Simulated assay, not measured.
Amino acid sequence: MIYELLHPIVTPLATAIWRPDVVGTDNVPATGPVILASNHLSFVDSVVIPLTSPRQVAFLAKAEYFTGTGVRGWISREWFTGVGSIPVNRDDARAAQESLDLALTHLRGGGAFGIYPEGTRSRDGRLYRGRTGVAWLALQARCPIVPVGLSGTDQIQPVGARLPRRARVRVEFGSPIQVEGRFDGMPQGRARREITDEVMAAILTMTGQEWAGEYNQRQPDMPA
Score class of each variant (00 low, 15 high):
residue 40 H to R: 05
residue 40 H to Y: 06
residue 40 H to F: 01
residue 41 L to C: 05
residue 41 L to M: 12
residue 41 L to S: 11
residue 41 L to I: 01
residue 42 S to H: 07
residue 45 D to R: 03
residue 48 V to P: 00
residue 48 V to A: 09
residue 48 V to L: 06
residue 49 I to F: 02
residue 50 P to T: 09
residue 50 P to F: 04
residue 51 L to K: 08
residue 51 L to M: 04
residue 51 L to A: 03
residue 54 P to R: 02
residue 54 P to Y: 03
residue 57 V to F: 05
residue 57 V to H: 02
residue 57 V to M: 03
residue 57 V to R: 00
residue 57 V to D: 07
residue 58 A to E: 07
residue 58 A to N: 03
residue 58 A to Q: 04
residue 59 F to S: 04
residue 59 F to D: 07
residue 59 F to C: 08
residue 59 F to V: 03
residue 61 A to R: 00
residue 61 A to K: 01
residue 61 A to H: 02
residue 62 K to L: 05
residue 63 A to C: 11
residue 63 A to P: 03
residue 64 E to T: 10
residue 64 E to L: 04
residue 64 E to Y: 05
residue 65 Y to Q: 10
residue 65 Y to F: 12
residue 65 Y to T: 10
residue 65 Y to W: 08
residue 66 F to W: 06
residue 66 F to H: 00
residue 66 F to P: 05
residue 67 T to M: 12
residue 67 T to Q: 14
residue 68 G to I: 00
residue 69 T to N: 15
residue 70 G to W: 05
residue 70 G to Q: 07
residue 70 G to M: 07
residue 71 V to W: 13
residue 71 V to Q: 12
residue 72 R to Y: 10
residue 72 R to L: 13
residue 73 G to F: 02
residue 73 G to S: 07
residue 73 G to I: 07
residue 73 G to N: 10
residue 75 I to A: 14
residue 75 I to N: 07
residue 76 S to A: 15
residue 77 R to V: 06
residue 77 R to L: 09
residue 78 E to A: 14
residue 79 W to V: 01
residue 79 W to T: 07
residue 79 W to I: 02
residue 81 T to F: 07
residue 82 G to N: 08
residue 83 V to N: 04
residue 84 G to C: 01
residue 84 G to Q: 09
residue 84 G to R: 02
residue 84 G to H: 00
residue 85 S to L: 01
residue 86 I to L: 15
residue 86 I to C: 11
residue 86 I to N: 11
residue 86 I to S: 09
residue 86 I to R: 09
residue 87 P to G: 06
residue 88 V to E: 08
residue 88 V to H: 00
residue 89 N to H: 14
residue 89 N to A: 13
residue 89 N to K: 14
residue 90 R to C: 05
residue 91 D to Q: 14
residue 91 D to Y: 13
residue 91 D to L: 04
residue 92 D to E: 01
residue 93 A to V: 09
residue 93 A to P: 15
residue 93 A to W: 14
residue 94 R to Q: 12
residue 95 A to N: 15
residue 95 A to K: 14
residue 96 A to R: 09
residue 96 A to Q: 12
residue 97 Q to R: 15
residue 98 E to A: 08
residue 98 E to M: 12
residue 98 E to W: 11
residue 99 S to E: 11
residue 99 S to W: 03
residue 99 S to G: 14
residue 100 L to I: 01
residue 100 L to Q: 05
residue 100 L to W: 11
residue 100 L to C: 03
residue 101 D to L: 12
residue 101 D to F: 00
residue 103 A to T: 04
residue 103 A to Y: 03
residue 105 T to L: 12
residue 105 T to G: 15
residue 106 H to K: 14
residue 107 L to D: 04
residue 107 L to T: 04
residue 108 R to F: 11
residue 108 R to Q: 15
residue 108 R to N: 15
residue 108 R to L: 11
residue 109 G to F: 04
residue 109 G to L: 04
residue 109 G to C: 10
residue 110 G to R: 02
residue 111 G to F: 05
residue 111 G to A: 11
residue 111 G to D: 09
residue 116 Y to C: 02
residue 116 Y to I: 09
residue 116 Y to A: 10
residue 118 E to Y: 03
residue 119 G to C: 02
residue 120 T to Y: 05
residue 120 T to S: 10
residue 121 R to K: 11
residue 121 R to E: 01
residue 121 R to I: 09
residue 121 R to C: 09
